[in-house]
Structures are given as C-alpha cells and as structure tokens.
Design a protein around this nucleic acid. Structure first.
Lengths: 144, 144
DNA sequence: GAGGTTATTGCAACTTCTTGCAATAAATTG
DNA sequence: CAATTTATTGCAAGAAGTTGCAATAACCTC
C-alpha cells in the first residue's frame, strides 16, 4: 500500500491531473482501515482540504476507481464503499457490529468460472461484500 | 408465482393490512420479468394506484421484503432492485444490454459453507447480482 | 354495520447522490 | 515564466431515497 504522495506520478502517468482534493481523498482512504462510504470520505476529506465539495468527492471516487487506484464495493443494502486498491479480495461484514473480514478473490474464482461456462457471460470480477453475523454477535443472539 | 390477488390472505395472515397501494406494487412486480428498481416500481404503480407516493413505494418494498413476499437484490453499482419471491436464485446481469440470467442459490452454497467454516460468521443468504457481459455483447466488443 | 384501534398513508423537510455549466487552476508550450 | 489549453472544481438545481408526524382507512369488536 503506497503512501498517498506516491500517487501523484501514478495519476499523472495516466493522464490525470494531481489536485489537492484528489490527494486529500487518497489520504483519507489511506488512513482508514476497511471501506468508507462517500459521505464519510467527504467528512474526513474536508478536514484536509477545507473547501472540498461533496460533488468533487463523488466524482473523484469514480475517477480513482476507473484508474484502478481505488476499489468500489457494492455492499448489501445498496450502498457503495471505497478503499485503496490492494490485493484482490472480497469482504464479509457483520450486519450487527460492522466487523469486517476479508477473503481472497480466488475463493470466488471457481464459482465465476463455473458460471461463465454455463452462461457464456464474461463476469466482472467486482468486489462483493457479503453480510452476516460475526462469531461474537452470533453468541449474543442465539443462533439466528 | 401466485397471482397478486392471492397475496391478500398472505399479508393478512402475517398481521399486515391489505391496501390498494400494496396490491398495486405486487401487481407491478408480478407483471414485470426480472428486477425492478424502486423508481420504476413507482412509475408503474402510479398507473394502477394514481395517488400513490414514492414514500409509500419505498416503505412497502421494505415491508414486503420483510414478509418474504418480495426479494431485494443488491446490484453492483449500488442500486437495489426488487422482484416477487420465487425459487432461491441469484442473478447475472449484462452490464451493456441488461439481459438477465439466473443461477441457483445452491451454486453459492459451497462458497458460503467454506467461508462460514473459515470465518465463524453466519452468512446471510441474500440475493446477489453479479455483472458481466452476455455472449451477444462479448461478440460486439472484441473480448473485453 | 357503527365505533374504536392502530397500521398505513401522504405531506413536508431532509439527506444522499447526480448533472450542467461557468470559473479555476494544473499541465504544456514557446 | 507568461500564455495557452483543457481537465477539474464549485455552484446551483434536481433526482433518488429517508424520516417524523398528523390524517386516513383497514381491521376488529360488539
């Protein structure tokens, strides 16, 4: 996981400009563990780049996602979350306490291959975030 | 897939009231193949139940989901979509033309079991909607 | 079927996310 | 390093989704 400042050349080489807002967003994602929703990114980014607007945050998350520097995850419940690109993986989020566990991309690979063979589709290897109850919360709530 | 009118007793038996708005929403879902996003449900439902409001649609989709009569799917891209409950399955949606293919719940079951063993989590067997390119669209766009 | 109870609805206000457009500033060129 | 180019930003307006609350209308009881 590179330091935020190292993203400048990365952006430039892909034809994108290096702006303070963009770096603030990368810094925020760098400083937080796990996923962050756009609103949270905005709340933190404005501390680093006071004039930044939500519009800019939303748009840059898209841009950064398209460059591959940032990953977008669809969380069950219909919300998007973002994180710095790292080793390919998916997430398992506790629906009660929010605890997160990651699992490797390859875990899904078998399913994807099977589905591709059966359907003829070329499946996007997007991040997926499954939800459930973590061991702690299972104890506290019987077995459901 | 029962006819919409058959849902009345179903609702009542679970302690929910049967309203014209609720039936309109069920009718809409019944009449359309595949998933529908809330906005689309509203657009069609107001033809059947002119005074209906978006608020009512959003709230009822939640209620109907909680009764189990309707399923909610998290589509990649962060949008929720709804459909009448049917045999457990997931979806594979073409990101270009929107074509949908379904695959059985059991396809994911192995992954879920494996993850549950490894993580200790109890995984929610929510609907998942994967995206990709269908065979047609693959042809039209090289191999990507 | 009239009256009482309360789930459900619609309204209004709000949060979250998106889009068009003019102003700004990052990068390039001489 | 001034001038030029144009990606990027912020603003304003709007679409999408959520929440609190008073009015409505299902449902139950007699």
């Amino acid at each position: 996981m590179p330091r935020p400042s190292e993203y400048a050349p990365e952006l430039r080489s892909r034809g994108f400009r290096v702006t303070s807002q963009r770096l603030a967003i990368l810094q925020v994602l760098h400083d937080s563990a796990g996923h962050l929703q756009p609103t949270a990114v905005y709340a933190r980014a404005r501390r680093l780049s006071p004039g930044i607007t939500p519009t800019t945050v939303y748009r840059n998350l898209q841009v950064l996602k398209n460059t591959g520097l940032v990953w977008e995850t669809s969380r069950l419940g219909g919300h998007l979350a973002y994180e710095l690109a790292a080793a390919e993986h998916h997430h398992l989020v506790c629906r009660r306490c929010g605890a997160q566990v990651t699992f490797r991309q390859s875990t899904m690979a078998g399913i994807y291959r099977k589905l591709e063979r059966a359907s003829g589709y070329a499946i996007d290897h997007d991040h997926v975030s499954l939800s459930g109850l973590c061991p702690e919360c299972r104890k506290q709530s019987g077995t459901a």
